[in-house]
């Protein structure tokens, strides 16, 4: 083979620039992980002495683990609530006609595009107005409601891609609408449901802006970390952040496994949407 002429080779400068952008994206994460093993704490250069200390300290820290349990409960509840209502909303947007449908659609999606502080404060005022005690329950209601937007977007996209004639065939073969829903519609949406569920779970675990205003006595994990940050930096936070990062990566990998086993392209598009 003859050498590629100059004009078809990729521009080297641009390649270096892309490399620098990647470095920028990954540098903080690398620093975070490395210093979680540094005996002398966060800061200073280079990190010198390896230690598991911070992780040991973390595992004995019951406040953190309580907050993890709280976060898990809230996230699990938010997934169930927002997937249920999001599925219904997606079906309604796809199939039903009612007055104010376009307003409804925009309203559902509002928490997705509005800054979290606005949704959080609105829900705070609502809670006070209704005389609700701020607690994990209000956080759960807040997450569950705000994340209906994500569920609806994902599932509506799934429904749009679905072949409507499959359901027609099911009805034609004698299945009731109820049976068709369980046997045809839902299995078709499986991948969208998993994608939406994972996304909602991650977003809920990570949520601060809405939680900030709805939290009672019990902290979620991000708010526990937030509270400690105000007191100062400790490598224990590096350790817990590293663990959170690890769990995020594991979730991504799980998702890829599911996707690889199920199907190709359209699922990828789902993941690629933030």
């Amino acid at each position: 083979m003859s050498g590629e002429p100059k004009h078809t080779r990729s521009p080297r400068l641009l390649g270096l620039y892309a490399l620098a952008v990647f470095a920028f994206l990954y540098l903080p994460i690398v620093v975070l992980v490395v210093y979680s093993f540094n005996r002398d704490g966060v800061g200073g250069f280079p990190p010198r002495h390896f230690t598991w200390n911070w992780y040991q300290q973390l595992f004995g820290d019951s406040a953190i683990w309580d907050s993890v349990a709280n976060s898990l409960m809230v996230a699990a509840g938010a997934v169930v609530l927002s997937l249920t209502l999001g599925l219904l909303a997606a079906l309604a947007l796809d199939r039903a006609t009612f007055p104010g449908k376009s307003i409804f659609r925009r309203l559902v999606l509002l928490p997705l595009i509005l800054p979290g502080i606005i949704t959080g404060l609105s829900l705070l005022m609502f809670a006070v107005y209704e005389g609700l005690q701020l607690s994990l329950l209000t956080v759960f209601l807040g997450h569950g409601t705000a994340l209906i937007s994500v569920a609806t977007t994902e599932l509506f996209a799934g429904l749009q891609k679905m072949d409507r004639s499959q359901e027609e065939a099911s009805l034609d073969l004698g299945a009731t609408p109820w049976q068709s829903f369980w046997r045809v519609t839902l299995p078709n949406l499986k991948l969208s449901l998993i994608a939406a569920g994972l996304l909602i779970f991650t977003l809920s675990m990570d949520e601060i802006a809405v939680t900030f205003f709805l939290i009672g006595r019990d902290n979620t994990l991000p708010l526990e970390i937030w509270a400690r940050l105000r007191r100062g930096i400790t490598p224990e936070i590096n350790a817990v952040s590293t663990l959170i990062f690890g769990v995020s990566v594991i979730l991504i990998l799980i998702w890829y496994q599911i996707r690889a086993r199920s199907m190709g392209k359209e699922a990828q598009e789902l993941l690629e949407r933030p």
Partner: peptide, 11 residues
């Protein structure tokens, strides 16, 4: 993109 906002801010 999947890494926590707080974690990245903290870093």
């Amino acid at each position: 993109l999947w890494v926590s906002y707080l974690v990245r801010g903290y870093a």
